[in-house]
C-alpha cells in the first residue's frame, strides 16, 4: 500500500536485512514468522453506532461501525437483506494518505473484507426481510482506518466481524401498510464467523501479519479467510510480485491454524463487550 514513504535504496537495504533475519527464523520487530502482533479488540467503542469495534493490531488501528436502514431490496435478490462493507483510509492514518474518494487500495480492502463476510454466510441475509420484495434491512458496515502500519486487511476484517457480532439493530414491523419501528432491538442473525489471515511473501518466505516495513519490501501479500468449520471462504493475492505455486498450499495450512488463535481473541472480546 502506498501508505508509507518509499525509497528504493532504503527498501533494498531493509529487504536484505529482513532476509538475513528470516534465514534464522526472525523478523525485524523480534517476532517469529508465524507470530501476530498484539491484537486488541474493543467492542462497542462508538455508542451511537448499532454495533462497533476498535481494533488495534500493533500500530495499525481501525474502527468499524454498523448502521441500519430499511430499504427496498435489490431487484435480483428480493428475498434478502442488504449488507454493504466499505473501508476508507482517513487522512489521519498516515502522512501519505490523502483525502478524497477511495483509491484502488481502499477499494480492494473493502471488497476483500466484504468477500470474506459474504462468502462465509456470516450474516443470514434471508432473515433480514420485513416484506419480501418491498422492505428489507440494509446493514452498512463502515470502516475507518485511523493509523496504518501494515496488515490493514486483517485489522479491517476483525473490526467488521466484531462490530457485526456486537450489533443490536432496531426492530421494524410492517403494520397498517407501513414500516414501523417497534422500539425493540435485536442481534443480527449470525450463522458463521470468518477469520482473515494475511501473510507477506518475501522471496518465497511467508510471514503472518506483516507490519508496514515488511509490506514495503514484500513481493506479494496473501489473504486467506477461514470459516468456523476450518473451510476456506475467500482469498486474494496482492502486490506486484509472484510466488511459487506450492507456497499457496503452505499459506492455506498456516491460515487454518492461525485462524483458531485469532478466533479465540475475537470471541473473548465480544463476550466481554456483551457482559
Amino acid at each position: 500500500m502506498s501508505m508509507v514513504k518509499r525509497s528504493a535504496i532504503v527498501d533494498k537495504l531493509r529487504r536484505k536485512r529482513m532476509l538475513e533475519l528470516l534465514a534464522e527464523g526472525k523478523r525485524i520487530d523480534g517476532r517469529g514468522p508465524l507470530d501476530y502482533r498484539k491484537l486488541e479488540v474493543e467492542i462497542g467503542a462508538i455508542e451511537k453506532a448499532e454495533g462497533s469495534a476498535l481494533v488495534t493490531l500493533g500500530n495499525t488501528k481501525v474502527v468499524a461501525g454498523v448502521k441500519v436502514k430499511v430499504e427496498e431490496p435489490f431487484p435480483d435478490t428480493p428475498d434478502k437483506g442488504i449488507l454493504i462493507v466499505n473501508a476508507e483510509v482517513l487522512p489521519v492514518a498516515s502522512a501519505y494518505a490523502e483525502p478524497g474518494p477511495p483509491d484502488e487500495n481502499a477499494i480492494e480492502l473493502s471488497r476483500v473484507t466484504d468477500r470474506g463476510v459474504r462468502a462465509s454466510g456470516m450474516v443470514d441475509l434471508s432473515k433480514l426481510v420485513i416484506v419480501e420484495g418491498k422492505w428489507v434491512y440494509s446493514i452498512f458496515v463502515d470502516v475507518s482506518v485511523l493509523n496504518t502500519d501494515g496488515n490493514l486487511f486483517d485489522a479491517t476484517s476483525y473490526a467488521v466481524v466484531s462490530a457485526l457480532l456486537n450489533a443490536k439493530i432496531p426492530k421494524y414491523v410492517f403494520e397498517d401498510g407501513e414500516v414501523k419501528e417497534t422500539g425493540e432491538v435485536m442481534p443480527l442473525p449470525i450463522s458463521n464467523v470468518p477469520i482473515s489471515v494475511t501473510m507477506a511473501s518475501i522471496e518465497d518466505k511467508l510471514v503472518v501479519d506483516p507490519n508496514g516495513e515488511e509490506e514495503g519490501v514484500m513481493d506479494a501479500r496473501l489473504t486467506l479467510v477461514v470459516d468456523e468449520e476450518g473451510r476456506l471462504c475467500a482469498g486474494q493475492k496482492g502486490g506486484s510480485g509472484s510466488l511459487r505455486p506450492e507456497k499457496l498450499m503452505e499459506a492455506v495450512e498456516i491460515a487454518i491454524n492461525k485462524s483458531k488463535e485469532i478466533r479465540k481473541v475475537i470471541e473473548e472480546a465480544v463476550k466481554v463487550g456483551k457482559a
Partner: peptide
C-alpha cells in the same frame, strides 16, 4: 510462479 490468485466461495 503464481501472479494472480483470488478466491470466493466455500
Amino acid at each position: 510462479r503464481v501472479t494472480l490468485f483470488q478466491f470466493e466461495g466455500i
